[in-house]
């Protein structure tokens, strides 16, 4: 925690210290909105890039290629240098009408009344359960996020020879993470008949010595304490069993929109993202949302940062600030937001 003041009002509260939250905070700062606070529920700020130990991060923001943890550290350094308040270990538990936030901290519960709130809570992968995957529930079933956090933050290995589910960009990132940690995936599978990436990226599984099977479905996960094997069925009905000690479910990102869902903000039923207008404003005009919370499909860190910057500028304008494009720490993307 970098601040333990019990101040109960602020101009803008930003929930989440990942790339979108940081981009927004810096944009607000440049636009002269100085009473900004970033609320981070984790003990360490920086968001998901903290545990993506691979490049490339930071090209747009810092004009160099960084690995995720250095990129996250740079972001937080920029926040600190700008003198923006950043409160870690602060969990927002409820979004009240008009920007009134209920928080829990180890020092006790508190409320913050913010004139505007930016939701920048990011995205996460769909876990096994919500995919309705058949089989038992032994130890060793996890998402890429958990794998990378274990390896890059804790130096721990959850399995040695997992079966990897998914062929999105993150799935190949997971293969790199495995390679780095000495983990040897037995096979990479997808229910879809096509991968979710370019052919060039898709080729990399060969380089990594991991066979890929498309159009196959898991029909059982076996193992008493830890995963022992996975049985799959292909499009022709043929059944194969792979010995493995884990199952890694990658991708199928869903917005971390629980606060919005449990609050009274409208969600887009198709994506589960908070519904926002062209300025990034939610159904309650005190709330804005940015970054991967509103991106479907998910985007890379630099794009989330830019989305945060745009939301920050929109909030500044909304608050009556005089905002010029040059106030923006990086040039806003001219393409239309989708």
């Amino acid at each position: 925690m970098t601040d333990s003041s019990s101040k109960t009002a602020c101009t803008v509260a930003i929930i989440g210290s990942g790339p979108a939250g940081v981009g927004a905070a810096l944009a607000l700062h440049k636009a002269g909105i100085d009473d900004v606070v970033i609320l981070e529920r984790d003990q360490e700020a920086g968001g998901v890039p903290r545990h993506c130990g691979h490049p490339p991060f930071g090209l747009r923001e810092y004009h160099r290629i960084l690995a995720g943890p250095s990129y996250a550290a740079r972001n937080i350094q920029a926040i600190t240098e700008a003198g923006i308040r950043l409160l870690t270990g602060h969990t927002v538990t409820r979004l009240g009408k008009g920007g009134s936030l209920d928080l829990v901290t180890s020092q006790g519960a508190r409320t913050i009344a913010a004139q505007r709130v930016l939701l920048a809570t990011g995205t996460r992968e769909t876990p096994r359960a919500a995919r309705f995957v058949s089989g038992g529930r032994p130890l060793g079933i996890l998402n890429t996020g958990a794998l990378q956090a274990m390896i890059y933050l804790k130096g721990m290995i959850p399995f040695r020879s997992p079966l990897v589910v998914g062929t999105e960009l993150v799935s190949f990132s997971a293969l790199w993470t495995c390679k780095k940690a000495g983990i040897r995936p037995v096979v990479m599978i997808d229910e879809e008949k096509k991968t979710g990436v370019s052919r060039l990226v898709a080729m990399s599984h060969r380089y990594m010595g991991v066979p890929m099977l498309l159009g196959v479905e898991i029909i059982n996960i076996q193992g008493r304490d830890r995963v022992e094997s996975v049985t799959i069925r292909d499009g022709n009905g043929a059944i194969r069993e792979f010995a493995c000690d884990g199952v890694l479910f990658t991708g199928r990102f869903v917005p971390e929109a629980s606060l919005a869902r449990l609050g009274d903000l409208c969600l887009d039923p198709a994506t589960g993202c908070p519904a926002v207008d062209s300025e990034g404003r939610c159904s309650d005009p005190a709330y804005f949302a940015a970054g991967n919370l509103v991106h479907a499909p998910v985007r890379v860190a630099g794009q989330c940062y830019r989305s945060g910057v745009q939301a920050g500028l929109a909030i500044a304008r909304d608050l009556g600030g005089r905002v010029h494009e040059k106030d923006c720490p990086i040039p806003p993307d001219r393409r239309k937001r989708t």
Partner: peptide, 30 residues
């Protein structure tokens, strides 16, 4: 909960190191 360990598995593996008969981590990087 809803993330089924996406966010907390790593911290949990650390907190439960050497506590479980079947541990969350099967080894350390080094």
């Amino acid at each position: 909960g809803r993330c089924q360990g996406f966010y907390c598995s790593a911290r949990l593996a650390e907190l439960t190191r050497a506590k479980f008969a079947t541990p969350l981590g099967v080894g350390e990087i080094n």
